[in-house]
Design a protein around this nucleic acid. Structure first.
Length: 638
RNA sequence: GCCGAUGUAGCUCAGCCGGUAGAGCAAGCGAUUCGUAAUCGCUAGGUCAGGAGUUCGAAUCUCCUCAUCGGCUCCA
């Protein structure tokens, strides 16, 4: 028997017999390491603890507390769930069951629908399996053998998966725990006993292989953690997130409504919501003018022919609303670009005019499928902070960089973290290969120049060009695309845009589509959740509520009210005949940043006593002093 | 669009196996004038999402439509 040399993560090495199991090597290294290890990496490849090491190797345990460890744990729990489902319900076919960001799921094909009571039953069964301490045993078999096995079991989805494997795959691995066999790459935890904390969350429909042409399966979502404590923390997080839901807060803070009678996906902004929106839009206009944009405004409906010319009629029609006026077809705009093109075309342009940056808070309509609508985050009418930049190919890079800077600045002001993605050519698209390559390269180059970390999203571009997407997260950690930069060589071509170059010849400009906050509605939704409705002072629709202790202070209160209004403070009065505590509670629940208390003392000294939303009392001060305080904070975007 | 769940007063919700609706908060009125998260009392409020059916009788059972929620697919 030959000897092998194992390098361990602490820098030490050990000599063992070839063929020794990872479990035993780890035990002889550090006994304790086996308690928390769910699997291991041998030369960087994830393996089970039962894996036998044949040659010299680097060995590293995968801890249950690590991200990779948690993934493996959850994946194993999904197997246990599938096992429990099969043992509890006859005729269930399994398909796939991976771990995901916050847990795991498994998709089943079953004639009956799973109910919430069924989930409890499944959970109970799972606990039995966990208690039985069943080892996960890996078996490698030939592809044919696996096909035969699953065919016999009637597991047609597994057979389909096997048949679709690349031809050079000759062997596949199975994992067996108790009676249950699953096709799986692994690795898995050594035994079901290692599962300490899990919970099944909900059932939902999901298409087989994510394709809407395929059969819809039933997906059971669950989550699992290394410890009960972490599971509890996660469940608490979900509770907290629910409280932050912008749809709930939108109602509580009286910001907006989405009403059946009006139509799905159509938002009505109430006074406070409209005010918040106005504050954001004012900020936008100011920042765009600062950066050399021109503010423009296009019409809401444009002739059908124009949409045919732009390619929207062929590629975007299913999302568009149309109307007929005097026998002419008109399309309600789903995007703002067309009018901006017409502005460019309104006269001859010189290279000296470029870049031209047209900005519009443009309201668009898109016929989104009913099932995707979601509060403010996915609607059918929305307003984009949209701009189209027409420039020479040489200017492309610096323009993209300037936009990326702008996005970074905006995210800092509003306090968001974000992720960046580069999306490439989709199947359904227009334009030449060269243009797509050039556009994609330009976007990528500017990301690299700016040293921005990004992921590539293959085939996720717009139909007219590739794009850079900036994604924000909502309270439930769902990612929402807000800012985006899209490079477009096609529309300038279709609309025959040109400029006269230094050589006196006509040239074709390049167009960038871009938004900074994206859709104002969506951005507001994410903003509400981000702040849990407690907006910073500069964004708060109501910055202060004046409240009298008794009716005696009303005349003075009216005076202060006018003074604050005149100074531009967004202030409300609560002069009702209620106790102070009641008024404070109400303002507190409305998350108003300042409550200005007026009692006899304040009247006598011509002052107000501000109480902050966090409960801190600032002590009496003159109204002008309070005005100065508000102004100072707003300038600093606090 | 697809799968599943849900839809009762302005809001949050109760209403078991069918016998024509109830609570708290909010609202209106009255009392109280009370200094940092809820003063007390009274009053009013609903074609039980909409439509059709079963039944002597439907919020409750069946079907259809609409909307919402959780996902899938798609997207700002």
């Amino acid at each position: 028997m030959s000897e092998i040399k194992i390098h361990l993560p602490d820098g030490s090495s050990a000599i063992h017999e070839s063929g020794m199991a990872v479990r035993d090597i780890l035990t002889s290294w550090k006994k304790a390491s086996l308690k928390s290890a769910v699997a291991a990496k041998v030369n960087g490849v994830k393996v089970d603890l039962s894996f036998r090491v044949e040659k010299d190797a680097d060995l590293e345990p995968i801890e249950i507390g690590s991200k990779e460890g948690l993934d493996i744990l959850r994946h194993s729990i999904s197997h246990v769930m599938a096992q429990a489902v099969q043992e509890s319900f006859a005729g269930v076919k399994v398909s796939i069951g991976p771990s995901i960001e916050d847990g795991f799921y498994y998709d089943f094909d079953y004639s009956e629908t799973f109910t919430l009571e069924d989930l409890q039953k499944i959970e109970k069964k799972m606990r039995d399996i966990v208690a039985a301490d069943l080892p996960f045993i890996r078996r490698e078999v030939s592809r044919e053998e696996a096909v035969e096995l699953f065919r016999k079991k009637g597991e047609s989805y597994k057979v389909e998966l096997l048949n679709d494997l690349p031809e050079d795959v000759k062997e596949v691995s199975l994992y067996i725990d108790g009676e249950y066999v699953d096709l799986c790459r692994g690795p898995h935890i050594p035994s079901t006993k290692m599962i300490k904390a899990f919970k099944l969350m909900n059932v939902a429909g999901a298409y087989w292989r994510g394709d809407e042409k395929n059969k819809m399966l039933q997906r059971i979502y669950g989550t699992g953690f290394a410890t009960e404590k972490e599971l509890k923390e996660y469940l608490n997080f979900l509770e907290e997130a629910k409280k932050r839901d912008h749809r709930k807060l939108g109602k509580e803070l009286d910001l907006f409504q989405v009403n059946d009678e009006v139509g799905p996906g159509l938002v009505i902004f109430h006074p406070k919501g409209a005010l918040l929106r106005m504050i954001i839009e004012d900020w936008e206009r100011k920042e765009h003018l600062k950066r050399g944009y021109d503010i423009v405004q296009g019409p809401q409906i444009l002739r059908g022919d124009l949409w045919k010319k732009s390619g929207h009629f062929d590629h975007y029609r299913e999302f568009m609303y149309f109307t007929e006026v005097e026998g002419q077809l008109y399309g309600i705009k789903p995007m703002n670009c067309i009018a901006h093109m017409m502005i460019y075309k309104s006269k001859i342009r010189s290279y000296r005019d470029l870049p031209l940056r047209y900005f519009e808070l443009g309201t668009v309509h898109r016929h989104e499928k009913t099932g995707v609508l979601h509060g403010l985050l996915r609607v059918r009418q929305f307003t984009q902070d949209d701009a189209h930049i027409l420039c020479t190919p040489d200017q492309l890079n610096s323009e993209i960089r300037a936009i990326a800077d702008f996005v970074g600045y905006a995210m800092k002001i509003f306090g968001f973290d974000y992720e960046v993605e580069l999306s490439t050519r989709p199947e359904k698209s227009i334009g030449s290969d060269e243009d797509w390559e050039m556009a994609t390269a330009a976007l990528e180059a500017s990301l690299k120049d700016n040293r921005m970390a990004y992921e590539v999203n293959v085939g996720d571009g717009a139909f007219y060009g590739p794009k850079i997407d900036f994604k924000l997260k909502d309270a439930l950690k769902r990612k929402w695309q807000c800012a985006t930069i899209q490079c477009d060589f096609t529309l300038p071509e279709r609309f025959d845009l040109s400029y006269i170059g230094p050589d006196g010849e006509k040239h074709r400009p390049v167009m960038l589509h871009r938004v900074i906050l994206g859709a104002i509605e969506r951005f507001m939704g994410v903003l509400i959740e981000h702040h849990a409705g407690a907006f910073p002072l500069w964004l708060s629709p109501v910055q202060a509520v004046l409240m009298t202790v008794t009716d005696n202070q009303i005349p003075y209160g009216e005076n202060v009210y006018l003074q604050l209004l005149d100074a531009g403070v967004r202030v409300e009065r609560d002069f009702r005949n209620e106790k102070l505590g009641y008024k404070i509670r109400e303002a507190q629940m409305q998350k108003v940043p300042f409550m200005l208390v007026i009692g006899d003392k304040e009247v006598e000294s011509s002052r107000v006593s501000p109480r902050q939303r966090d409960g801190k009392n600032l002590g009496p001060m003159g109204p002008d002093e309070f005005i100065a305080l508000v102004r100072e904070k707003c300038i600093k975007y606090e």
